[in-house]
């Protein structure tokens, strides 16, 4: 039964990550996605020090980080990548300093201590919120990516949509923190989406393949890690990376 709970939650998170990742990649948020997950580290560290639920600390830090990135993108002309680069390494440095060293490894690479039923329920609900938001907003987000001006002419508020996507993204990262950890969660969002970009032929196939690649990586990673006693997070990401490698060979010849 515990296996069912864990696996179902992880699969829900995987589908959410695949969908979010498909858009994150189009938005060129590869670096931002790493940064957002790294921002969790100081929050996790503080929570562990003060002995409250680390996920809450991480979540608070991530939401703050997402708002920060959104504001910076909107208000300044400093290259977002520069700021993200700084925030990213600073978070890692500060976070490593304040996180108790015996827990640092788990925070960085995730650990798998099962979920209690409340955590399971919250996780499933959050995954469903992410999945349904993305499915509901997919056309708007895509149009805003093609051209903010065209989006404007059909009544889309680009700035609000952008913030909403960042929050969905942040929520997704928070969800995966527990089993993938700070260093790897960004990868579950980006790598399956990158696999899909190599193979997809239209919008729908892109979303489906991206979710499928994430799901496959998590499922196979889970099986491998429990059978061969491997760390879960790194195993999942290794499977995803292998998929990416394979997908390169099947890349459409017409790709630009």
């Amino acid at each position: 039964m515990e296996l069912f709970f864990s696996l179902s939650l992880m699969m829900a998170v995987a589908i959410a990550s695949g969908l979010v990742g498909a858009f994150a990649l189009m938005k060129k948020m590869t670096l931002a996605s790493d940064a957002i997950s790294h921002i969790a580290l100081p929050g996790l560290g503080i929570a562990l020090l003060l002995k409250f639920n680390p996920i809450i600390g991480g979540a608070a830090a991530i939401l703050l980080g997402a708002l920060l990135i959104w504001t910076v993108e909107r208000k300044t002309r400093i290259a977002t990548e520069t700021i993200i680069g700084v925030v990213f390494s600073a978070s890692l440095a500060i976070g490593s300093l304040i996180t108790p060293s015996e827990e640092l490894l788990e925070v960085l690479f995730g650990g798998f201590n099962g979920f209690d039923s409340a955590e399971w329920l919250i996780g499933i609900i959050m995954s469903l919120i992410i999945i349904s938001s993305i499915l509901f907003l997919k056309e708007r987000i895509a149009l805003s990516l093609v051209s903010q001006d065209l989006a404007k002419t059909v009544g889309i508020n680009n700035s609000r949509l952008n913030l909403f996507f960042l929050l969905i993204f942040a929520l997704n990262v928070i969800l995966g923190l527990k089993f993938l950890g700070v260093l790897l969660m960004g990868s579950l969002i980006i790598i399956p989406a990158a696999v899909s970009k190599n193979l997809s032929w239209n919008f729908r196939s892109d979303l489906i393949l991206s979710a499928a690649a994430a799901l496959f990586s998590v499922a196979i990673g889970f099986v491998l890690s429990s059978n061969f006693d491997l760390e879960l997070g790194p195993t999942i990401i290794s499977v995803a990376a292998l998929l990416f490698l394979l997908s390169v060979f099947f890349k459409k010849s017409s790709a630009n």
Binding site: K28, A142, T153, S196, K197, R204
Partner: peptide, 29 residues
């Protein structure tokens, strides 16, 4: 209002067909 921009910056990661692109408008509206 219909707007035809001079050009759009297409990202190579954007896997949209022309049909997908046109459907974005029909679906939103």
């Amino acid at each position: 209002i219909g707007y035809v921009p001079q050009r759009i910056d297409l990202d190579r990661y954007l896997s949209l067909t022309l049909e997908d692109f046109l459907s974005l408008k029909t679906k939103v509206l």
